[in-house]
Design a protein around this nucleic acid. Structure first.
Length: 584
RNA sequence: GGGCCCGUAGCUCAGUGGACAGAGUGCUUGGUUCCGGACCAAGAUGUCGCGGGUUCAAAUCCCGUCGGGUCCGCCA
């Protein structure tokens, strides 16, 4: 209902300003502080005071006088508080919210008939996913979820870099070395942990090996790259053997989050179908194209990008960026919008890509990036697959689940609720809480800020954490388990207690939160919302008995309110990719 | 050195033109005959990195500066 009342408020202010013959370019609509009783407010009187020649409070009063709340469904009253015009919700606002939130799908916005492809993670298939990379699937999945909730037709893509130099090195190393050459056992019994050893071995050899042998290896690697460029099927098969195996392992790891994809798009596909060659030809025709030191480049200096973008190597092979251009034109053909979630280290490359796409005649407004900053280890240490430094995501998830299991077992004794948990329940809760805590810790922060990864902090199960908000959901379920059915068509008017009203107000805001999070591609605002929601719910829970409420009408209304709260919390958590436990 | 991002309570973070700058954590104290105590209540905490500027109004916008991150490969 928040979105509806927001529209009504905008219309009301606009009409009032029109009637007063004042400009309507900025309505100054904002959400008032907590202690103000309004759902929305306007600070427009500040701006118009000079024009009108009256003090802001007077202007605010004039605007308020001009608005008749009876003409609006969800605006109950218009008041002023100094220079602010406040809009109070009507009884219909509460009724409509309570009713709308009975739907399990509450918070889903109407279908927009617009497709969006969200590309995220796209980590090179070189080895195990480490925590430094984990921010990408967690944020990316949440961005996709939020867009999905907001009514877009969402596809999740993982772009597989299967044609670059790194994969040529990996393929060479995989074919050249034997188990006996490797000096360590796999850290885990899964394929990418096995194969990454070859990749590390190969890189170490290229760095420190005897000059002659390194030269021979380079020739071999060069041969693989040329083969791919020429569209040679055999070469492709050789590389694929490595890529597909490593990727399948990484996929298993990501599925634990879970982060699932609709499609794994291989960059080699844009070499085989000729679109990269075609793109190179078109790039050469651009005024910005220059041929320097035997390589074709794009001079983007006049667009504020100092670094020239090489798109064809002197040996005639294409680069990652070249293929990515073809990839993006393919996205534009198939989707209305394209969102890419990528690390800040790819920022320059993304800017170059966008500029080049624009020069090629694409509408780059349909392309948006979500940039996230690094996850560092304490002491400022980075994480690298090639060097083998960093915490594996698998280890983090294992540790999180283990700690959560300990926690559940520890709490068993002092547990008030007498619903004997089975071994299966304990395992489920450990999983939901442990993984949820990791995701929530990462998704709840602004992606642009760097994170220092610390075990204790990431796995703190109290306070502003996943378990804290998950607990609210479990409490809702606990209450609803005790009732035969949720009453239909209840009257929100009997919810007189302030705490129940406050809860209904917070529930009402949820679709608006989704709407804004989708518009700004900022899922962390949903996490902030779940915290506020939990606080409001807990206050309600403390003050308002549900099952033993004073009379049937109140009990019915409160049961419906709890059902509404449950749907809201379940869906908010779902957009964050955090499980909503029915008990914990 | 240049571009971009970040700097808010001891710590981890919300807030990015508008009502007195907010949570959690940590510290102190209290609360389960009552729907789930992974909860709640009460108490102290700030040069919003620093200096200018714009504005009726700045943590928020602009300029400068300091500190941290990141990029500046014919890697991805």
């Amino acid at each position: 209902m928040f979105i509806a009342v927001r529209e009504e408020v905008a219309a009301a202010i606009e009409d009032a300003l029109d009637a007063l013959d004042l400009p309507t370019d900025d309505l100054g609509i904002e959400e008032p502080p907590e202690d103000v009783d309004a759902v929305l407010a306007s600070s427009v009187a500040f701006r118009l005071a000079g024009e009108v020649g009256a003090p802001p409070p007077k202007v605010a009063a004039d605007i308020a006088d001009e608005i008749d709340p009876d003409t609006y469904e969800y605006v109950g009253a218009v008041t002023t508080q100094g220079p602010y015009v406040n809009f109070l919700p009507s009884e219909a606002y509460f009724d409509a919210t309570l009713s709308a939130a009975q739907d399990e799908e509450y918070g889903h916005l109407p279908d927009r008939d617009e497709s969006v492809v969200v590309e995220h993670t796209s980590a090179n298939p070189t080895g195990p996913v480490h925590v430094g990379r984990a921010r990408n699937p967690i944020v990316g999945d949440a961005v996709a979820n939020v867009l999905d909730f907001a009514g877009y037709d969402v596809e999740r893509h993982y772009y597989v870099n299967d044609a670059g130099r790194q994969m040529a090195v990996f393929t060479w190393a995989y074919e050249t070395f034997d188990e006996a050459d490797l000096d360590s056992e796999p850290e885990r019994d899964r394929i990418e942990y096995d194969l990454v050893r070859y990749y590390r071995k190969g890189n170490a050899f290229l760095e420190d090996g005897p000059d002659e042998e390194v030269e021979a290896a380079e020739a071999e690697i060069q041969g693989i790259m040329q083969g791919l460029e020429a569209g040679d099927r055999d070469t492709f098969e050789r590389v694929s053997e490595v890529v597909d195996q490593v990727l399948s392992g990484m996929q298993e790891c990501l599925a634990r989050l879970p982060a699932e994809f609709d499609e794994f798009v291989k960059e080699s596909q844009f070499m085989f179908d000729g679109s990269t060659d075609d793109l190179v030809d078109r790039l050469k025709e651009l005024d910005e194209a220059v041929y320097e030191e035997d390589a074709w480049q794009l001079d983007l200096g006049e667009y504020g990008i100092d670094k020239q973008m090489v798109f064809l190597r002197s040996d005639g092979t294409s680069l990652y960026t070249t293929r990515d251009l073809a990839h993006h034109e393919w996205k534009f053909e198939n989707y209305d919008r394209a969102v890419t979630v990528l690390g800040e280290d790819h920022k320059l490359q993304a800017d170059q890509l966008q500029q080049a796409l624009s020069l090629l005649g694409n509408d780059v407004d349909q392309l948006e990036n979500v940039i996230f900053s690094w996850v560092n280890l304490p002491g400022g240490l980075g994480m690298s697959t090639r060097a083998g430094t960093g915490v594996d995501l698998d280890d983090l998830l294992d540790e999180a689940t283990d700690r959560a299991r300990d926690e559940v077992e520890e709490r068993m004794e002092e547990r008030i609720r007498d619903d004997d948990l089975t071994e299966e329940d304990i395992e489920r809760i450990a999983h939901q809480v442990g993984i949820g805590a990791v995701r929530y810790d990462i998704v709840s922060k602004q992606p642009t800020k760097a994170i220092t990864f610390e075990w204790d902090q990431a796995l703190d199960f109290e306070a502003q954490s996943a378990p804290y908000v998950q607990y609210v959901h479990a409490r809702c379920c606990g209450i609803l388990d005790e009732v035969d059915s949720v009453p239909e068509a209840v009257d929100a008017g009997v919810l007189e207690r302030e705490e129940s009203r406050d809860l209904l107000r917070v529930i009402a805001r949820f679709p608006g939160v989704i709407d804004e999070a989708a518009a700004d591609l900022e899922p962390h605002t949903v996490a902030t919302y779940t915290r506020e929601f939990a606080e409001t719910f807990n206050a309600f829970y403390r003050e308002c008995q549900v099952l033993s409420a004073e009379d049937k009408a109140v009990r019915d209304a409160r049961v419906a309110l709890v059902a509404a709260a449950r749907h809201t919390m379940a869906n908010a958590l779902s957009t964050l990719g955090v499980a909503a436990p029915r008990s914990m």
